[in-house]
């Protein structure tokens, strides 16, 4: 944005190299990249997409200027592989709930994985799987995190545009409710008594679920900061109490609201623990 030369010349010289890596995930977030149909050509011109196995079998070695990481760490091999990916990445961005918070597969963190292996596989000794699913940030330094299951493609595009322009990316941490009200949706919690996680969930999705009459299930993770950084954890205790005392959810239902796609994210994890023996 700030350069003085015409953009064409600049791009030819310094087109950043992009790599997209997958760990334990469903590929939905990578598909969100490919779903940027209107912008894909321009994106391919602005960036040199050199490693993206989901999209192309032409894969080039690192280092990479920008790396997108999808998926959580669930095997010891992946725990080693992410170290190598980090070494090759100038800027590392996690895309989606799995990479950012451990994903739905982090529900195993409350279960006995060995028992699962024995129940599912005839020869469980061949399964190399860690006892917990963990986010990328528990293994390496992460520069930016995109939440969501899947991510919002517009938010990804905006992040890439900001990085290309050399400005500090803005990733809003406010609640879903602001966007819900801007769009004029009727609150599903107040008008219908649904246990909506929107008030404690990070914006970015465009308030899709409440817009379709559904209660938010928190796929964009906790609003504000998950305990660290300048933000505070959202007030999950107050919302949970409302679910239980006024919306008549029994404790295990309250627990399950918070122990979902982002159940391993600390504010949601802590809240689910608070309802374990309630």
């Amino acid at each position: 944005m700030r350069q003085q030369q015409p953009a064409k010349t600049t791009k030819a010289v310094t087109r950043p190299r992009l790599g997209v890596f997958k760990f334990a995930s469903c590929d939905g977030c990578q598909l969100s990249v490919l779903n940027l149909e209107d912008e894909l050509v321009a994106l391919g011109q602005a960036l040199d997409i050199v490693y993206f196995p989901e999209a192309s079998s032409a894969m080039k070695a690192g280092p990479y200027d920008i790396v997108l990481v999808e998926g959580s760490i669930t095997t010891s091999e992946d725990a080693r592989r992410i170290l190598n990916v980090r070494e090759q990445a100038r800027t590392l961005i996690t895309i989606g709930a799995c990479a950012t918070a451990g994903g739905i597969q982090a529900l195993r963190n409350w279960a006995d994985v060995e028992a699962f292996k024995r129940a599912v596989y005839p020869s469980p000794q061949y399964i190399d799987s860690l006892g917990a699913s963990t986010p990328i940030s528990e293994h390496v330094r992460v520069d930016y995190e995109l939440w969501g299951c899947p991510i919002d493609k517009g938010q990804l595009l905006r992040l890439l545009i900001d990085l290309l322009a050399g400005v500090q990316p803005r990733l809003p941490t406010q609640s879903v409710c602001l966007e819900c009200k801007r769009q004029g949706h009727v609150c599903v919690m107040v008008a219908r008594g649904l246990p909506c996680l929107g008030p404690v969930t990070r914006t970015g999705c465009g308030a899709i679920c409440p817009g379709m009459g559904r209660d938010c299930y928190g796929c964009f993770g906790p609003a504000e900061g998950p305990s660290a950084g300048p933000g505070l954890p959202p007030n999950t205790a107050s919302l949970a109490s409302r679910f239980h005392h006024d919306l008549q959810l029994i404790p295990v239902e309250v627990l399950r609201r918070f122990r979902g796609i982002n159940g391993h994210a600390k504010p949601f994890k802590d809240e689910s623990h608070a309802w374990e023996d309630a």
Binding site: S175, C177, K181, V200, E224, P234, N235, S238
Partner: peptide, 13 residues
């Protein structure tokens, strides 16, 4: 503050 969700709904409406 112990009850407030800081969700911003009051200001939106």
């Amino acid at each position: 503050a112990a009850r407030c969700l800081a969700c911003g709904n009051c200001t939106m409406v």
